[in-house]
Design a protein around this nucleic acid. Structure first.
Lengths: 228, 228
DNA sequence: GCTAAAGCTATAACGCGTTATAATCCAAAT
DNA sequence: ATTTGGATTATAACGCGTTATAGCTTTAGC
């Protein structure tokens, strides 16, 4: 005899579970609120009662998956500077395990009139980056005058928009990694002490070479034929 | 007696004109394809025949407005480094003249499942930044090893995502300007020669102070109460 | 065990972007 | 001047996210 709250939670879980299953199976296409309700064995009205909107459901799915990333992150041991780049590589690796799924969720959570994109990458990721910035500054690798919030925000944003480009199918995972690494290298070097800059500088040239290689096939300005 | 092509072009213009008028009047809300068709005096099917989609229409509106920005940009005379920051300020100024309109257009062009956001800020802006990077490098202010495409792309992206945050109503125009300036300062300093870095460094602290002031009211992590 | 109410269900409906289908119009080629 | 054919029209329709309404199930309080 389940209590009221338990039954509600069970329905909530069923909806999230069904959402994950549908996403993994068919990706973004064919995932509608009606299909979700049917797959979860509830009425179309129930997801709205329990979550409020499709986007909120996608955010919940994203949160569930994000917990795993945080676990891996905690286990990550690296130098105060290398950690920035390894954290990116870790995320890329996890995305690569289920790319279709992550693309679909990101797209649904953000793309569909999603005005809450800060909620997706706002809190949890931002705080991580901020912590690392503080650490690197304490290690004397970043200028002491650097404001952790400001730098962490720039890093988050750069990460976020590259992920978006990947979710929209405009770049591959490998280019995503190189791009974020490159932007991170420049941002961090711009905020670094002489000692820090010396450590970051060697990263720049190889990253540029990788990027140039990507763009050899698909040239950068990418569409000069719009001109509508 | 208009020729066939003239009539088509007249309809095209009528649609764009009506779109601009509707956007300026009511903003994003209340702007639907049906309302647009009625305002332009054409059938609902015509915009689709002539443009293909709502997003394409928004891009056309955006392009029309962008020409003005390009004009101003060409007239901009500044140092090889200062030009980056002045170009940003110029865009902010133009946005400020008709913020509701620009927000609505950006939102419609990008937000509604807009997978073509590279088209919005891809070509025209990207090429501008690339040109300035080349110039600054030739002036000995950026490292000669810096690849113009890679840096210009990072700059474009950073600009773009801040504009998006503004369009989504999450930050004001003044914070937009400070944020982009700050990111630009770090990115450019990271790519700069010693001489260039010396010129950029003084910008950083004041920008941080401005940003900190913005965040004094609305704290950065911004929503710890989601936890759905 | 009974009553009251909370919450889910089924269902219809709204406006949206978009597409399809026929009817119609009108410049262009003969 | 007549025919032809491509484009525009009006209109219906589809699926989408979302909301509203009314009925029913089931839990909580007595």
């Amino acid at each position: 005899m389940p209590t009221r709250e338990q039954a509600k939670q069970a329905r909530r879980d069923a909806i999230i579970t069904a959402a994950v299953r549908l996403m993994r199976a068919r990706g973004d296409a064919g995932f509608s609120m009606r299909a979700l309700a049917e797959a979860a064995g509830v009425s179309i009205a129930t997801p709205y009662n329990l979550f409020g909107s499709k986007q909120a459901i996608m955010l919940a799915v994203l949160d569930a998956g994000m917990a795993r990333y945080e676990d891996h992150l905690d286990r990550l041991e690296a130098d105060a500077l290398d950690i920035f780049f390894e954290a990116v590589s870790l995320a890329v690796e996890l995305y690569g395990e289920a790319p279709k799924f992550h693309k679909a969720v990101l797209f649904a959570a953000y793309g569909d009139g999603g005005r809450d994109h800060r909620a997706v990458f706002g809190d949890p990721r931002f705080l991580f980056w901020k912590g690392r910035v503080d650490q690197a500054r304490d290690a004397g690798l970043l200028e002491s005058e650097i404001e952790a919030n400001a730098l962490a925000l720039a890093l988050s944003q750069q990460f976020f928009i590259c992920i978006l480009e990947w979710a929209y199918g405009q770049i591959g995972l490998d280019e995503l990694e190189s791009r974020v690494h490159y932007s991170f290298a420049l941002l961090l070097k711009g905020a670094a002490t002489a000692a820090g800059a010396e450590r970051i500088a060697p990263r720049i040239r190889p990253l540029q070479q990788q990027l140039t290689r990507f763009w050899a096939d698909a040239p950068l300005p990418l569409t000069a034929d719009k001109s509508a």
